[in-house]
């Protein structure tokens, strides 16, 4: 029997993998991908709650999360391309102008 807890644990593990990617990769595009991973982990727990609590609101919210994620990816990749044109690199250690 698969319970709600199974899905929550899987979702938490996926989210943590995304955090590892965001914190310890230096490649801007891989960091964007890890962000997607985290959003998807959240989506999974939304859908699991929607199923186990018997309400459709969770799935509606997942749709909105997907909209935001798609917009974020499009703008983020455009920024990555623009940064690459300016600096010739997408290593985030070299793009540290705003970092204190």
């Amino acid at each position: 029997m698969v319970t709600l807890e199974h899905y929550l644990v899987l979702s938490a593990l996926l989210f943590s993998l995304g955090i590892v990617g965001v914190m310890f990769r230096r490649n801007l595009i891989v960091i964007l991908m890890s962000l997607e991973l985290m959003l998807n982990a959240v989506n999974l727990s939304f859908v699991a709650f929607s199923r186990y609590l018997g309400s459709i609101e969770g799935q509606i919210f997942v749709l909105f999360v997907m909209v935001v994620a798609a917009a974020e990816v499009a703008v983020g990749l455009a920024i990555a391309v623009a940064v690459f044109r300016q600096r010739g690199t997408i290593n985030i250690n070299d793009i540290s102008l705003l970092k204190w």
Partner: peptide, 22 residues
């Protein structure tokens, strides 16, 4: 999880569009 619509959207939007963009 019986969320068939979201599964299709997931494949079309993520596996289809977003990953192709990457």
């Amino acid at each position: 999880l019986h969320a068939e619509f979201l599964a299709m959207v997931q494949i079309i939007v993520y596996a289809g569009a977003v990953m192709v963009l990457f």
